[in-house]
Simulated scan of single mutants.
Amino acid sequence: MSVIRWGIVGCGNVTEVKSGPGFQQAEGSELVAVMRRNGELAADYARRHGVGKWYDDADALIGDADVDAVYVATPPSTHKAYALAAAKAGKPVYVEKPMALHAGECREMIEACEAAGVPLFVAYYRRALPRFLKVKQLLEMGAIGEIRFVTTVHTKKLTEDPANLPWRVLPELSGGGHFFDLASHTLDLLDFLLGPIRDAAGRAGNQGKAYPAEDVVSGTYVFESGVQGIGIWCFTAYQGGEINEIVGSRGKLTFSTFGSEPIRLTTSDGIGDYSLEQPAHIQQPLIQTIVNELLGRGSCPSTGASALRTAVVMDELVKLRSL
């Protein structure tokens, strides 16, 4: 096999720019089919993106002999079902993040893929972006000395209309609120940069009462290396912003998970900034690592196993709730 032929289950907004074109532009990759429950929207997507086939039934796409691997881009509530269907069909599966509604579902997905002998990948694409590979390089070369602790502060204004709530703040569809949608990226990134978290504890609350999910989460965690961490996520604040700071024995690194401002290295020698452009299709670098692994040319850094660790941490951080 020289080309991986992809099918997308759920060709919604995330696939328009972030991911869909990445399957077409990655080397050794081709997007051959898309599916959406609304057939007219699926056909429109296929026409606009030059995709040969479209479906309004997920099982039909998964069973298509021309589809080698399946990308699940639906809300988390259906990730497990589609991943299990792909595994049963003997096809590698790439699912959006968060991986599922909770860690228990993640484990079921991993077990099903292992039993079927197919790989499972998860769309924590920051693991492959040049911006965060630079942060990892600086840490590994000892730019800030021995790593001591990391802090995260992430705020967002309340903008939801209670009469028309998006699926991202409905726990039955997303697993939680913006914490599950956004903080999962940061927590997975910290796993990538600093290693696995060995234990975590937190509190979740609903201060704004605008939707049923948590809108504030605070937590502490300790990495297997002994590095300690603390985070606060509030989605009903007066303004939005987010920053991560990794502090070491000789300096610190400051950067955002979602922004594009320079990475800042601060030491006693002064301040240095590192600017790296984001790719036009943000998931393409990770997609390339998946294609490379499927073709036997490399490995992908974001797997079901690594995403499960992030799911476990998120579950622990919201275990104590005052909603």
Rank of each mutant, 00 (worst) to 15 (best):
V93S: 11
E27Q: 14
F121W: 04
H79N: 13
V312L: 13
E224M: 06
T155R: 08
D215S: 08
S184N: 04
S2V: 07
K97G: 02
L173W: 05
N244T: 00
F223R: 00
D59I: 05
G226T: 07
P262T: 06
I232A: 03
S225H: 02
G259R: 00
E140R: 13
I144N: 04
S29L: 06
V169N: 03
N206G: 01
R107I: 08
I290F: 11
E111L: 09
S275T: 15
L101W: 05
L101Q: 09
L320Y: 04
V216G: 01
G28D: 04
D181H: 07
E40F: 12
R126I: 07
K53E: 09
V216Q: 01
V95W: 14
A204H: 05
L101F: 07
E96Q: 13
L170D: 07
D161V: 04
A87S: 11
R250L: 10
L320E: 15
S19H: 09
A163H: 04
I62M: 12
S302Y: 03
I230K: 07
K97T: 02
G176Q: 09
S256M: 00
E245P: 01
T155K: 00
V150H: 04
V3G: 10
L308I: 08
V216W: 00
N13R: 14
I290S: 06
E316P: 03
S322F: 00
H185L: 08
C113Y: 12
K157D: 08
C300G: 01
D56A: 11
A123P: 05
S29V: 01
K134P: 11
K97C: 04
L120S: 12
R48Y: 11
Y125Q: 09
C11Y: 07
I287N: 03
A33K: 06
A83N: 12
S184I: 05
Y238N: 09
Q278D: 15
Y94Q: 10
P92K: 13
V17K: 15
V217E: 13
S299V: 05
S29N: 02
L101M: 07
A103L: 12
K88C: 14
L308K: 03
K136N: 01
I62D: 07
H178F: 14
K53P: 10
F180S: 11
G117C: 09
I230M: 14
A46T: 13
L193N: 00
L170E: 05
L129Q: 10
L276T: 11
G226I: 07
G219F: 05
Q137S: 10
D64F: 12
G240K: 02
I287E: 15
A112K: 07
L190I: 00
A280I: 06
T236N: 11
L173K: 11
Y94H: 11
P285Q: 10
D68S: 12
T15E: 15
W233V: 01
P166H: 01
F258T: 03
L308W: 04
G7V: 10
I271K: 10
T289F: 03
G231D: 02
I147H: 04
P166S: 04
A81H: 13
S77D: 12
E108V: 14
H102A: 12
I62C: 12
S260K: 15
V72Q: 11
L194P: 01
F192D: 08
G270S: 09
A307I: 03
E277P: 05
V247T: 05
G28H: 06
G39T: 03
L133K: 13
V318M: 11
Q284G: 01
A112P: 06
R250K: 10
A115I: 13
